[in-house]
């Protein structure tokens, strides 16, 4: 990936932002942005609509949280294992889901995610309805104390950048080239000898693992892992973020996550808190009907009109 001026500008903004805005809030945006980017890899670049990505976000969070509380691991190892657990679950779920197409794919992912929701609801180690609370952030590599929010933010930024880079590399790799071919014309890809389901499966695993990475990191930021993250609402929210930002664009999910998280933060504090789901629903409908390209699409149009 070549670094454009836009990349550099955004990176500068990300570096200075915690001096202006609350670092935990920014870290939350980055976690959800990574989650949405991982989801977008499937929807935008393979054409698969997963409606169960909360399963991977939640798994990453629970496993990492549990390890931090019980295994005396350093955070980077706990996150790595949480990510691997989500990737493993993705391997299993993906194997079952990629055999289906369109709405059936979405239904299978939803059903499987509901299954894991009930597992986590019942399993003693998750803390059930209360969730896993007071997860220690620990010391990165045994050296850097993450309890400081600013330090934590920069760590999350590094994790995000890694995930963002990996997704972009995947899109622009030999593998990504085959994914594009499959999305564009699946029967033709088959007739060229590609076992398309294997490619979808690998993409699913990458997406699941990175969603898990987002969840794992998030559990350290908030020192909390709870059922909210595995609930189907969360699976819907990531669809919303991606659609609002712009499906199949590099920056769309990032922008969408920023917009939705900001809005939720703003609304939940105010009088409109009770209407948050209605407002979200309305935004969703408006985006789908009027702004097919999402925020990124609208921005591009704006730039073209004024500078093009």
């Amino acid at each position: 990936m070549k670094l454009s001026k836009l990349h550099i500008a955004l990176l500068l903004v990300a570096l200075v932002a915690p001096f202006v805005l609350y670092p935990v809030f920014l870290a939350k945006i980055l976690c959800f942005a990574l989650f949405a980017c991982a989801f977008n890899l499937l929807l935008g670049y393979v054409g698969l609509l997963s409606f169960g990505h909360a399963a991977f976000l939640g798994t990453g969070g629970y496993i990492t949280g549990w390890l931090m509380m019980n295994a005396n691991l350093t955070p980077e190892l706990a996150i790595l294992l949480g990510t691997a657990a989500a990737g493993l679950l993705g391997a299993l779920y993906g194997k079952l889901a990629v055999k289906r197409e369109g709405i059936y794919f979405a239904m299978v992912t939803l059903a499987l995610a509901q299954l894991i929701f009930f597992v986590y609801l019942q399993a003693p180690f998750t803390g059930g309805e209360d969730g896993m609370q007071g997860i220690p952030r620990g010391e990165l590599f045994g050296l850097i104390d993450l309890s400081d929010n600013l330090t934590m933010y920069y760590f999350v930024l590094a994790v995000f950048l890694f995930g963002f880079w990996l997704i972009n590399r995947t899109i622009h790799s030999p593998f990504g080239q085959v994914l594009k071919a499959i999305r564009e014309n699946e029967p033709r890809a088959v007739s060229l000898g590609y076992n398309v389901n294997d490619y979808k499966w690998v993409a699913f695993m990458i997406s699941a693992a990175l969603a898990g990475l987002a969840g794992a990191t998030k559990s350290l930021v908030f020192q909390l892992a709870s059922l909210t993250d595995v609930h189907w609402h969360m699976s819907g929210e990531v669809v919303l973020m991606t659609l609002v930002g712009g499906v199949g664009t590099v920056f769309g999910p990032l922008l969408g996550a920023g917009a939705i998280v900001t809005m939720q933060n703003y609304l939940s504090g105010g009088e409109l808190g009770n209407y948050i789901h209605i407002i979200m629903g309305a935004i969703f409908v408006i985006c789908v009907l009027a702004f097919r390209g999402g925020l990124v699409g609208e921005l591009q149009k704006l730039v073209k009109r004024n500078f093009g």
């Binding site: 590399r169 030999p174 593998f175 990504g176 080239q177």
Partner: peptide, 11 residues
Amino acid sequence: SFHFWRPQRIL
């Protein structure tokens, strides 16, 4: 074709 970590330019 499964190498997702390598750049497209190797093609």
